[in-house]
Amino acid sequence: MTLTASPGITGRGTADLAVDLDSVVKRYGPVTAVDGVNLQIRPGEVVALLGPNGAGKTTTVDMLLGLAQPTEGTVRVYGRKPHDAVALGLVSAVMQTGGLLKDYTVEETVKLTAVLFGKPASSVGEALDRAGIADIGKRLVGKCSGGQQQRLRFAMALLPDPELLILDEPTTGMDVGGRHDFWQAIRRDAAGGRTVIFATHYLEEADAYADRVVFVRRGQIVADGTASSVKALASGRTVRATLPGAASSELESIAGVDTVEIRGDTVYLHGRDTDSIARYLLTSTPARDLEITSRNLEEAFLTLTADDAGSTR
């Protein structure tokens, strides 16, 4: 099942793309983590990579940062190889965990980053301010809370003044307050026109902060579009009807039906255009007792992103 609500990118050239993934495959031994991903992101977009754990989000992020090499296909960031874009400070990232030394202070950590990027000393205070951690500059990293460490990673990512900022599950392990503060800081920053890509498995985060949502499942993009259009695609409805002796192959061939489930004499047909499914059932089959129910967003998300093996539907 591939739903596409992507705004027309294909007509444009690729020279001015922030990110260009072309038929990218990444295998780790027998495991295919990313399975043929094509993704183009333009400068200024705020994009959510949404999917369950193990969907291939982190692997995709690693390839964008040059931390992993694709097995097949090409990855370009601002027209360059990912590692070159990283070294030039065009792209930076806030990683999920790790990446900090406990016996540095917050300020020293940022200072070291500034030194490595050849930025002036004044950029340190600026980055600390923008990440909202100027008050804890002298604190040892090992004594910082998870939220504070995450904002420190954010400050480090801001230092090269990147064109593209990548956030990998940025709010994992934060409490509600920490999460809110973190997104406030990101939002302020993105208002300045920076391209942002964030991987998340929180539907609300994708919904609230992204212009564009890319659903990933088992290493593939299953939907891509604006948050609202993807939600519309995902949140189809279900027609329940009593139809004895129905064959699932027959039901699947009805226009607009995505999935079919048969329980005894009752059939459940899921699809976007439930009106036409209902019309067909009533006019061309002996179906009766029709009922149309809509799925909630959470359920729709599960349908789009769940592993078939782990799913009961």
């Binding site: 931390l67 790790g98 030394l101 050849g118």
Partner: peptide, 16 residues
């Protein structure tokens, strides 16, 4: 220690 802490990986995100 730096590899165990993921610091080496973080340094890969710099020009070093």
């Amino acid at each position: 220690i730096e590899r165990a802490a993921g610091w080496s990986r973080q340094l890969r995100l710099t020009p070093l």
